[in-house]
């Protein structure tokens, strides 16, 4: 039975920072003051949340009007197991809520203390404000029924960070920050998995395209030139040349080596495609195109299924490869 491909968690996150413009800016500024604004559309309808352009006529809109902090449920659905980031972190209802004074519905969460029988269409609900509004849609923590609201406060997702206003805390909101975190299972291809498992044994496993004969490391799954699977395995030595390189002089977040240092394309002997790695063991200014290098492996007991088993490449001191021998790999 063939080995299963390798996989690993891939957790990514980013704080999306968005400028809001004049219409949404006034909406967000009002939220920070625990007020809700709508915008009057071309047909006189009041949209909440406000839209910048009329959905029917595409006319730019800018007449903002106050609406109430309570309204009526137009439709709803029940969430038995809240997902990460959702406003209420116990069973709750999503609802389309038409606030008094508005003609369109706002999508938000309704907390009934976890009871699915306590929500219905036509129900009157009221905003429960966040403790510290910052000018963000999450300043509306959630809604609760006006009649028989739950006895306790709902557990909520972490509040978004406040954007700093150029005019200080009291100034208009011009930016909203929304952290986004996503979780994936990233799978390596079968070919990459064989390559990574070989690395754990200190071997460099490439594959040759059966059509054009090119040798790929890491193996690609399909030859990008021919579009056929790369199948024939080739073990490569840990020596090669620098095809091209750059000297990193700029510090950046997450950097592990103090600049200046060299990032280079390394073409292993017998390979047709170079990969990116570090060249250390000499002054950055001594690194040249065509320079012969050898892998510097980490201690064997630290090896795992990663190219990080090779700490860096360092010069062998052999004569440089002539330009013509690698010109077609640049």
């Amino acid at each position: 039975m063939p080995e299963q491909p390798l996989s690993a968690p891939l957790d990514i996150g980013f704080d999306y920072t968005r400028s809001v413009g004049p219409v949404l800016g006034r909406f967000m500024t009002a939220l920070a003051q625990r007020r809700v604004l709508g915008v009057r559309g071309s047909d006189g309808r009041v949209h909440v949340p406000p839209v910048e352009y009329d959905p029917g006529t595409a006319e730019p809109l800018d007449e903002l009007v106050d609406v109430a902090a309570e309204g009526t449920i137009v439709s709803w659905s029940w969430v038995a197991e809240p997902l990460a980031g959702q406003p209420v972190q116990r069973p709750f209802a999503w609802a389309l809520i038409r606030l008094d004074g508005a003609d369109t519905a706002l999508l938000h969460a309704v907390d009934t203390g976890g009871d699915p029988a306590s929500v219905h269409t036509g129900q009157r609900v009221r905003i429960r404000w966040a403790d510290k509004p910052v000018g963000h849609i999450r300043d509306i923590a959630y809604f609760v029924p006006i009649t028989d609201p739950p006895a306790d406060a709902a557990p909520t997702a972490p509040a978004p960070p406040a954007a700093t206003s150029p005019d200080g805390d009291a100034g208009p909101v011009d930016t909203v920050i929304t952290p986004v975190h996503l979780n994936y299972t990233h799978s390596a291809s079968r070919e990459e998995s064989r390559y990574l498992r070989a690395l754990a044994d200190g071997r460099l496993l490439a594959q040759r395209c059966p059509a054009c004969g090119k040798v790929y490391i890491p193996p690609r799954g399909a030859c990008p030139t021919c579009g056929v699977p790369t199948t024939d395995e080739v073990e490569l030595p840990d020596t090669g040349i620098v095809t091209t390189f750059c000297i990193v002089n700029v510090p950046f977040l997450g950097q592990r080596i103090t600049p200046p240092y060299v990032g280079a394309y390394i073409l292993l002997d017998g390979a047709d495609i170079p990969f990116l790695h570090l060249v250390l063991g000499c002054e950055a200014s001594e690194v040249r195109m065509g320079m012969r290098v050898r892998a510097a492996w980490t201690p064997r007991e630290e090896w795992s299924t990663t190219l990080e088993n090779i700490a860096h490449f360092e010069p062998t001191g052999e004569a440089d490869a002539p330009y013509a021998s690698y010109a077609h790999h640049l």
Binding site: R18, M28, P49, W76, L83, G85, I137
Partner: peptide
Amino acid sequence: DPYTVAPLWPDSVSIAAMQARLGLE
């Protein structure tokens, strides 16, 4: 909408469920 909706993480199934209820009721 990345300003007023996505920050609440309403999932695709829940949104469709609200649509279904409108037709049922």
